[in-house]
Simulated scan of single mutants.
Amino acid sequence: MEQLGFDFGVEPQPLIKVTPARLSLYDDCPRRYRMTYLDRPAPVRTGPWAHNTVGAVVHNALRELFALPARRRTPERAAKLVAEHWRSAGFADAVQVARYAEAARRWVADYVEHHGAEADVVGLERWVSARVGSDPSAPSLLVEGRADRIDRRGGELVVVDYKTGRRALQDADAQRSQALALYAVAARRTLHAPCSRVELHHVPTGTVAVAEHTEKTLGEHVRKAEETATATRAAADRLTEGGDPDHLFPARPAPRCAWCELRPSCPEGKQAAPAARPWDLLAPTT
């Protein structure tokens, strides 16, 4: 007799687990994605980069600062935390190390004085996740990741991402950021509150780039993530079956190859641009 309401011949497709960082890496350069996540043994990399050192120090200091009660989030405490977390990897020399140690203390102290000392923080490097897809009734992705900071403002959540790069950011950068959009979707599912606002806080300049998402714009980011994740899984499956790694995960030469950490293992990257120095991507100190 026919079984009503059940289809025992169809196996449900497993969810594709992704993070915003993985999706972005594949979109930028499939070869870099393969070398980072799939190749074993791991390819040769460059040494440390000074801008990554500064970024890590600033993130660690702000994480500890915003874990404190609001009354203790002072510029002086912020500067002290930078000093406690300071590292010197990737800099040109001791003079440059000293200059950026002082600059980072000033940047973080000024940021705390003008932005967010009274923030109602509900998450610091909070792990958030959500099942999403272009068809809400049949999600295809498990999106997860760690957001720098999640605030509560007026009953809604706001995703905050710290940046320490060479240039200040614009609202369009926040709107285009797939990572921030996916964090907003995951934050609302994890913390059970509305979330449509995302912000990029550029600490060296104290500027804030803002995007107010709608269900439509969030859906567009989810669909794009779904396309990328599907392509990534298909390429990885074919690689496991013996496919050509360079064909399945091609290089995308671009100026950014100058500072790619996998440049030593990528002939196309070496040809694309002259090698950057480890301190070339630091933000200006003045």
Rank of each mutant, 00 (worst) to 15 (best):
R22V: 00
P20C: 06
A42Q: 14
A186W: 12
P75Q: 03
R188A: 04
H221Y: 09
Q178M: 15
K216T: 13
A50F: 07
G145E: 00
A211H: 14
D237C: 03
A101N: 01
L142V: 03
R73L: 07
G133A: 11
L142H: 11
L180I: 02
A42R: 15
A61E: 11
R176Y: 05
C195N: 06
R223Y: 10
E76M: 00
P75I: 04
S129R: 15
K17G: 13
S140F: 09
E220Q: 13
A234Q: 13
Y162P: 01
W107P: 15
E215N: 02
P274A: 13
A272F: 02
R252Y: 10
V108I: 14
V57S: 13
T205A: 00
T205W: 01
V158H: 07
W127Q: 09
A79R: 03
E64T: 11
A103C: 14
V208M: 10
R72E: 13
R252E: 13
Y111I: 12
F66S: 11
R233N: 05
D28F: 05
A229C: 12
W86Y: 02
D148P: 07
G47R: 14
E76T: 06
A231N: 08
A147E: 06
A184M: 04
S196K: 06
A92L: 02
R189H: 15
E144S: 12
R233K: 09
E11Y: 02
W107A: 15
G90I: 02
C260K: 05
R223T: 11
K163S: 09
G5V: 00
P250H: 08
V57C: 14
P194W: 12
E2M: 15
T230H: 09
A70D: 08
V159A: 02
S134Q: 08
A225R: 13
T217L: 08
A109W: 01
A42F: 11
R34G: 04
Q175A: 14
A61H: 06
L23W: 01
V158P: 02
Y183L: 10
T217F: 09
E144I: 05
L25M: 08
V143P: 10
A229V: 11
A42P: 07
H59Q: 14
T240Y: 05
D161Q: 10
Q170L: 03
